[in-house]
Design a protein around this nucleic acid. Structure first.
Lengths: 354, 354
DNA sequence: TTGTACGCGTTATCAT
DNA sequence: ATGATAACGCGTACAA
């Protein structure tokens, strides 16, 4: 029975081993590792020792001293095209900075969010990126008070002193619904996200404002909550097409609900844009390949990620740490495709288009 | 100038603070935190102290003692539907275990992979999940030798003693191409992923075997490397439709390339399945909503994630640590949709379908 | 059951 | 520029 018995991982070389082998003090090695000037001869010895020993700096131990982990927390809500895309861009964008994302998924319940926040606090992440949830306001406040910068994107939380990176939900929705009006639609429905979320409210408000600004009323029957989900979009669309007077156009407030809506339309043999015009928040490559092409609001995902990354860089620097909160609003593109078409005159419905 | 001047983060309460306030020794608090039996009165004191002080166990310091970070490394290749989906499922699946994913993105060059591996070693991840790259064989070997379990998915690396979770690339490709043959196609092209990757080779081999098993030769002109990328799929499809004798069916080896191919077909006004049958590796919701529906091989993403998670759980347990490598191969579903249709007889090409 | 004291690997503060 | 040494917060033998 040797000494290495049931030692799960071979003990990696430490800075002490390197110092011993190089014949210098550990302080010297530490300084070398952190880029301080080192006498030529010592430097060579150290580099050689590191090479031979296969030494790698222990980031955990370093973090304990410096209170810097180089780990950024990323709290992910239930799956969605947008959040996944942001995660993807973020981890790429942050790579050069030597930081990485610690990804944690929460479910909808707020107990799960508190648990996630505790996890991040415990792991001493340098800062935290999350899509807001109003219920999390108090835990977030505590996090910030404890010195952890928080960056909110996608969805806002009122009354917390944090950085914010959002897109112009209201204005973009206004523009795309205005487009529907421009091409003759007046019976325009809205499949909304949760009104509980700022993004859900704002996209609805853009829709409502577009109608009102053109002198139309919002018909409550045309506003259906799809709860951001594919199933919600599906049943919302079912209700819409089953109405005595179905809308001639639909604005769907996110990708998932649009997919659900398209699903129902397909099952019912309804054609876009012949039977219905459709516009969606969120754009994906396949929307351009859809038979007609789906008109969509493209969120600037890459720009969101870059902005977040640069805020992090700023907060991690000595000068930017106490800067007042950033409050950034990014523009969206409206991509017009074939799914939105000039409304047929009422008495031409059901007849060929030309 | 107060003492709190330029102290970036308020010092969080430590186990010592808790012990002091509760009037017990730190050992007692530590034992309480780790679920050992504690005398009733002390327990109450401790819980109260924790509550008042807002104490959170410092996972960094704990990791230093236990050599357990509860952080799992996840090395992500350039963007792809599949990898993103795995990441998504993984982080969800792992949540109950109290572990989270540290996500790091590499670019294609292998220097970037070494750098990533160093990063994970430095951060002392409990284990590492990655899609293999043959170039990374030696660094991976060192990682494993150092005691860090590695789990490969999607793409294999020969000659490394690690756990493997793959899908039946060859068999699934064989089945879907056999389907194309069954419905009368003989001029079947393959837009392949990189032959440098095991997944790329295996999918191609499934294609080739299907042809051979039915007595057909593989026509090299019909095999085009799309390098996994959308642009690759686009130009591959361009070459195919430009041929004197274009194929009547195409098997596209991943999602990105299928999107590129569809893009080109749309631009050229070519219709599926009238002008071409198409089958794709990787399935996404929108494939079912495509005009015709895209026949696809659905990888069991959730199953992959669950399997990986359970292997991790096993490796982290005392008994499973020295278990011999897992080698798991998961089944795919072939989803038949409208994009694959019985081949028209040669002399009916270009004429109306009925 | 509880208290004490040491060590994990690194950085930072001293002198030198 | 370098060497010695004290922390950082926690877990855990060991003694009580």
């Amino acid at each position: 029975m040797t000494t290495s018995d049931n030692i799960p991982r071979r003990r990696p070389a430490t800075i002490v081993d390197v110092a011993d082998r190089a014949g210098v003090a550990i302080g010297t090695v530490s300084r070398y590792l952190n880029g301080h000037p080192i006498r030529r001869g010592n430097r060579d010895q150290i580099e050689q020792a590191i090479e031979v020993l296969g030494y790698r700096r222990n980031a955990v131990a370093a973090a304990m001293k410096t209170d810097l982990t180089n780990v950024v927390g990323f709290l992910v809500p239930p799956p969605s095209e947008f959040h996944t895309a942001v995660l993807d861009h973020l981890s790429r964008t942050m790579r050069p900075s030597g930081r990485a994302l610690l990804t944690y998924c929460h479910t909808v319940d707020d107990a799960s969010i508190v648990e996630a926040l505790d996890f991040f606090v415990g792991h001493r992440v340098d800062c935290l990126i999350m899509s807001g949830e109003q219920e999390a306001a108090e835990p977030i406040r505590q996090l910030v008070a404890g010195g952890t910068p928080v960056i909110l994107y996608d969805n806002d939380v009122r009354g917390v002193p944090v950085d914010r990176v959002f897109v112009e939900n209201r204005a973009a929705s206004f523009r795309v619904v205005s487009h529907l009006i421009d091409i003759g639609h007046t019976e325009i429905a809205c499949v909304t996200g949760s009104m509980h979320d700022s993004a859900g409210r704002e996209r609805y408000e853009g829709y409502a404002q577009a109608l009102k600004s053109r002198g139309f009323e919002v018909d409550p029957a045309y506003v259906i909550d799809g709860d951001w989900k594919e199933t919600g979009g599906y049943s919302a669309m079912l209700r819409l097409v089953s109405m005595d007077k179905p809308p001639t156009a639909v604005f769907s407030c996110n990708y998932n609900m649009t997919v659900g809506g398209l699903q129902l339309l397909k099952e019912h043999g309804l054609k876009i844009p012949d039977d219905l015009s459709l516009a969606s928040f969120d754009d994906v490559p396949l929307f351009s390949l859809h038979e007609a092409g789906i008109t969509a609001v493209a969120q600037p995902v890459a720009k969101v990620a870059e902005t977040i990354a640069s805020i992090i860089a700023s907060r991690m620097s000595a000068t930017g740490a106490h800067h007042e909160p950033h409050n950034i609003m990014l523009n969206c593109d409206i991509i017009l495709r074939g799914s939105t078409r000039r409304r047929l005159t009422p008495n031409s419905i059901g007849q060929p288009d030309r």
